[in-house]
């Protein structure tokens, strides 16, 4: 599958030129360009994203907050997520089927900053039944894509 080979390269380095990818994959540049263009239009390639190191930006603390909501409130999910979106220290909001309902990824400068975010902002989010925290020690592997 030529398309998958192309994606394999773009998934690792989105700045590779079309001619470089074409050469690696073994197709002509024009054909490679058409394939990439088609996959972009079909939204198979959603976007090209920059990967930044939070520590280099002074964000030393990263915590996964796993939250169970009070589901007796019918609009608990919507109201919780709406409020969580307002917090600039939250860079990921995920919802799940399982014991955990929602996960927030929180980034802070240090533990004191994290504590402030947690007490002032997280604990005042609506409809929380239970919170559990996993603090990131290290990223062991971060392909974070699709196996191709």
């Amino acid at each position: 599958m030529i398309d998958k080979k192309i994606l394999r390269f773009l998934q690792v380095d989105a700045l590779l030129s079309v001619s470089e990818i074409a050469e690696q994959v073994g197709v002509g540049t024009a054909s490679c360009w058409r394939r990439i263009d088609r996959m972009e239009k079909a939204n198979i390639i959603k976007e090209r994203a920059v990967i930044l190191d939070p520590k280099a930006l002074g964000l030393e603390v990263e915590v996964s907050l796993r939250i169970t909501l009070d589901k007796t409130q019918t609009d608990a999910f919507d109201r919780f997520i709406e409020a969580a979106r307002e917090l600039k220290e939250v860079n990921e909001i995920q919802t799940f089927l399982g014991r955990v309902d929602v996960r927030l990824n929180v980034l802070a400068r240090d533990m004191a900053h994290y504590q402030e975010i947690y007490r002032k902002h997280i604990l005042s989010l609506p409809h929380i039944a239970d919170i559990e925290a996993l603090m990131l020690v290290s990223n062991v592997m971060t392909k974070d894509g699709v196996p191709l």
């Binding site: 998934q11 690792v12 380095d13 989105a14 390639i45 959603k46 976007e47 920059v50 990967i51 190191d53």
Partner: peptide, 9 residues
């Protein structure tokens, strides 16, 4: 600071 750029699929 910038570790790379990748296509999100």
């Amino acid at each position: 600071v910038i570790k790379g750029r990748r296509a999100l699929l």
